[in-house]
Write a protein that binds this DNA or RNA. Sequence first.
DNA 1: TAGATTGTTAATCGATTAACAATC
DNA 2: TAGATTGTTAATCGATTAACAATC
Lengths: 214, 214
Amino acid sequence: MANQQPEVDGVKRIPKAVIRRLSLYSRVLQNLEMKNIQKISSKELSEHLGQNPAQVRKDLAYFGQFGKPGVGYYVADLRAQIKRILRTDREVRVAVVGAGSLGQALLSYPGFLRENFRVLAAFDVDPEKVGTRLRGVQVFPIDELEQRIPLLGVEILALTLPRDSAQDVVDRAVRCGITAILNFVPARLVVPPHVKVHYVDLTIELESLAYYLK
Amino acid sequence: MANQQPEVDGVKRIPKAVIRRLSLYSRVLQNLEMKNIQKISSKELSEHLGQNPAQVRKDLAYFGQFGKPGVGYYVADLRAQIKRILRTDREVRVAVVGAGSLGQALLSYPGFLRENFRVLAAFDVDPEKVGTRLRGVQVFPIDELEQRIPLLGVEILALTLPRDSAQDVVDRAVRCGITAILNFVPARLVVPPHVKVHYVDLTIELESLAYYLK
DNA sequence: TAGATTGTTAATCGATTAACAATC
DNA sequence: TAGATTGTTAATCGATTAACAATC
């Protein structure tokens, strides 16, 4: 039975939330693998995540059939499949723009290394930083963005720079081929439709938490 | 006309997404205020955010009536109202557990200062760090968590420590009165229902971005 | 007053959950 | 075979958007 989802122009529309959960499943499966657990049911998997088992099955069903009725899913196999779907079954190259303290934290973030992400360059305006290595990563002047990005094969850009220069950097990055941006800058970025931006907004996280106090 | 929302036990159920957008509105209004703009319609406000004007009005309607038909909203007034609703019209005290590079970045994160958040303590196990000041913030041994939190009046805890010790720290923090946690640790935390946890998961952000590459 | 925009209800859309036949 | 669990459709739930009377 072929996977038949609602399609638009022959392209399956996969909810963004599904993709995020896939990444979560992958992490849980990784932990299970380390505990030498061979197989797992959607029910057990969902319990690790505080979710609904039907949701796990439905999420996976967007991409194919990975389980065995009456048995469940094979942990190692399912994880490999998910990594393939997410395109993280290979090294993904990342650069950081803005080598302030948050930028530097990303340069050596252990979670990135673990998941096949390689942060291979930082860009900054500060002449003190340019030319040095921070946490083992070479710092380039921000003017060399257009030149270095294609050369280094950077696919994802993490933005940790001041608000005012963010949109300009984005425009330049998009022009030289960047299609994925992890944005820590508290500002809306305008990008063409083929470019994907994920916003990580620490102020909003904290401020919306404050609402629930007392 | 009184605000009548679907209620459960006399308490309005406000979607979490509404609260997050409130924080976003507040930021936009702050920018408008700095540009000396006096009033704004829901349509204009929504354009600043790439959203639907009806959503802006509906979000605000959860909390009361803040606009004037035919006129719009008064920028300064609306912002003050939102800050009051979010309970960020006062200083909110934050502590960071885990003074690694991400933790240190939070200690001096400019966005926090701007929004009335005060990070007034860090906790760590490392004896090299304990007793010193990092970015102007005193570092305490993690054993003193229970003692220091009530003493300092800490309301929100940001977790930037290794996975293995996270749940233990959470249990202890909850026992001494913490009800709001900003969690950067890539693990699910188990907390009682009155405690609110916001997850910031950098690996999931990056990994789900990878899906959209090429 | 005429024009504009709110607050709010109703319609739409999308995502989550339940249910169950298929099947290992 | 009997029991378990999948993949998938249908039902439910919740959130977003449209529409419009009220009103400044």
